[in-house]
Lab assay of single mutants.
Amino acid sequence: KEEVSSHTSPETGIWVTLGSEVFDVTEFVDLHPGGPSKLMLAAGGPLEPFWALYAVHNQSHVRELLAQYKIGEL
């Protein structure tokens, strides 16, 4: 988790977690339908608090999209 928390910018890579999985979403930030700034709120940390607020994320196609960016496990 400490390593994930240091990845919060395009220069270091933008990493997020979901459960025990780690994702590098650097290439996706500008494609995020809610805008880059919304995704950047989660940079370096867990997606769960944000996904709890926005139910649109609880769809299979969203998880499939995220899976493409998986880089490891906590």
Rank of each mutant, 00 (worst) to 15 (best):
D30Y: 09
L18W: 11
G72P: 09
D24E: 04
K70T: 04
S5T: 14
K1P: 04
S9D: 15
A67R: 13
T12G: 15
E73M: 10
A67S: 12
V4A: 11
S37I: 08
G45H: 10
G13F: 01
G44I: 10
A43C: 02
K70W: 07
L53P: 09
V29N: 04
E27P: 12
G19T: 03
H7W: 01
E64H: 10
L31K: 14
A55P: 15
T17P: 02
V62I: 05
H32E: 06
V16T: 13
A67G: 14
Q59H: 09
Y54N: 15
V25I: 12
W51L: 03
L39F: 08
L31Q: 14
V4K: 04
L66A: 03
Q68H: 09
H32I: 05
S6E: 15
P49A: 07
L18M: 13
T8A: 13
T17H: 10
R63P: 03
V29H: 00
L65W: 08
S9P: 07
G44P: 05
T17S: 14
R63W: 08
L18T: 06
A43Y: 02
D24Q: 00
E2H: 11
V4L: 13
V62Q: 04
V25T: 03
A52Q: 14
E11T: 10
T17W: 15
I71D: 01
V16S: 03
W51R: 00
L18G: 06
H57W: 02
Y54Q: 07
V4I: 14
E64V: 08
G45K: 14
I71S: 08
P10F: 09
G72M: 05
V56P: 04
A52T: 14
L39Y: 01
P36H: 02
V62K: 01
F23P: 03
D30I: 05
K38M: 07
I14N: 03
H61Y: 10
V22L: 14
P49K: 10
W51N: 00
Y69E: 06
Q59I: 02
H57M: 02
S20E: 13
S60I: 13
G34Q: 01
L31Y: 08
T12H: 12
V4R: 09
E2I: 14
L47A: 08
I71F: 06
L66H: 06
S37A: 13
H57V: 05
L65S: 08
L65Y: 06
E21D: 11
I71Q: 10
P49M: 05
P36T: 09
Y54G: 11
H7Y: 09
F28Y: 12
E2M: 14
V16I: 08
D30M: 07
E27G: 12
S6N: 15
G44L: 07
P10T: 12
L66N: 05
E48R: 01
E64D: 14
L31C: 03
S20P: 10
V4Q: 08
E48G: 04
K70C: 12
G45D: 03
Y69D: 00
M40F: 04
F50R: 05
A42C: 08
Q68R: 13
P49C: 06
S37G: 10
H32A: 00
P10V: 11
M40W: 06
A52F: 02
P10E: 12
V22P: 03
L53S: 14
G34H: 05
H32V: 00
L65V: 15
G19S: 08
S20M: 14
E64W: 04
N58R: 12
V62A: 03
H7F: 08
H57A: 00
V4S: 07
E3V: 14
L18H: 15
K38F: 11
L65E: 01
F28M: 03
H7D: 04
W51K: 03
E2W: 09
S60D: 10
V16H: 05
G35E: 02
V29M: 10
I71A: 09
R63Q: 12
G34N: 11
T8F: 15
A67F: 09
G72V: 02
S20W: 10
H57E: 08
V29T: 10
G44C: 07
G35D: 05
V25D: 01
G13C: 05
S60A: 12
H7Q: 03
E27K: 13
A52G: 13
G19D: 08
L41C: 07
T26G: 07
N58V: 06
H57N: 02
P10C: 10
D24F: 01
G72H: 09
L39N: 00
F23M: 05
G13V: 15
H7G: 12
F50K: 06
K1A: 00
I71L: 11
V56C: 12
L65G: 02
E73H: 11
E27R: 11
W15V: 10
G19H: 07
R63S: 07
S5Y: 14
L31V: 14
T26I: 02
V29I: 13
G44T: 00
T12W: 03
H57Y: 08
L47N: 00
V62W: 07
A55Y: 01
E3T: 14
L39A: 07
S5Q: 10
R63A: 08
H61T: 06
L65K: 11
V29A: 07
E64R: 11
S6R: 15
E11K: 11
L39H: 00
I14A: 01
F50H: 15
M40T: 10
V25F: 03
P36Y: 09
W15N: 07
H57R: 01
Q68L: 10
I14C: 06
H57Q: 02
A43S: 02
L39E: 07
S60E: 13
V25R: 00
S37L: 08
S5I: 14
H7S: 07
P49R: 07
G35F: 01
E27N: 12
E64I: 04
T26V: 02
G72W: 08
E21P: 01
F28D: 00
V25W: 02
E3Q: 13
L18E: 11
T8N: 14
S20V: 11
H57T: 03
K70N: 07
